[in-house]
């Protein structure tokens, strides 16, 4: 896992493809596995219900295939991570080994949760996603590099441009994606803002 304060410029490694639009966080981690007081150990529940049948037998899912074990880049389609705000979803992916996600688009809360963990979620065009997916599917040993700093994704000879919001990119490459310290540094201004809000004093001022 990336450490608090670590700069995230390029994430590279082998990749795994999970096809489909609107893969929601209930699918990424079913609610019954949220009954935990710590995120440790969530990795094994990533995509649980599409990886295992109800009797526990293994289903054919990219996360189960031997050639994708150890993958650190996940490639997906549209509106990935929609639905519930559970941070358990990116936490489960991260603990399974995913350190960067490339997709056509992401749900907003999910993308924010990824950022808070130092996991870049970058967008590339539909045709480029398709290209990356077929490269990885035909050669699972291919290294995919997610270059946050240069806003591109590379795989073999292919180099495609990636988009990521300016402020998210900035927070990753400068290592302030873990925002607590930056927010706390402004303590006085927090108090000042609070004192200007009429409801903070019960409208008694």
């Amino acid at each position: 896992m990336v450490k608090q304060g670590e700069e995230v410029r390029v994430v590279s490694g082998t990749a795994v493809v999970v096809r489909g639009n609107e893969i929601d966080t209930d699918r990424i981690i079913p609610a019954r596995y949220l009954k935990v007081v710590t995120f440790d150990g969530l990795g094994e529940f990533a995509f649980r219900d599409v990886r295992f049948a109800q009797d526990g037998s293994e289903l054919d899912h990219p996360f189960n295939r031997p050639e994708h074990q150890g993958a650190s880049v996940l490639i997906v389609n549209k509106n990935f991570g929609c639905g519930s705000s559970r941070e358990h979803a990116p936490q489960a992916l991260l603990r399974w080994g995913i350190h960067a996600i490339v997709g056509e688009s992401f749900a907003e809360i999910f993308a924010g949760n990824c950022n808070a963990l130092g996991v870049p979620a970058v967008r590339v065009s539909e045709s480029d996603v398709e290209r990356l997916m077929s490269i990885v599917e035909s050669d699972p040993s291919m290294t995919v590099a997610v270059d946050v700093e240069r806003r591109e994704v590379r795989a073999g000879d292919l180099r495609v441009s990636a988009s990521i919001a300016d402020e998210i990119r900035e927070s990753l490459v400068t290592g302030v994606w873990d925002s607590t310290a930056a927010l706390l540094a402004n303590r006085e201004r927090i108090a000042e803002t609070a004192s200007n809000l009429p409801y903070m004093s019960g409208f008694c001022a």
Partner: peptide
Amino acid sequence: VDQLSTGQDQ
């Protein structure tokens, strides 16, 4: 409260 170095708002 402020604008953060990343450009996000606090």
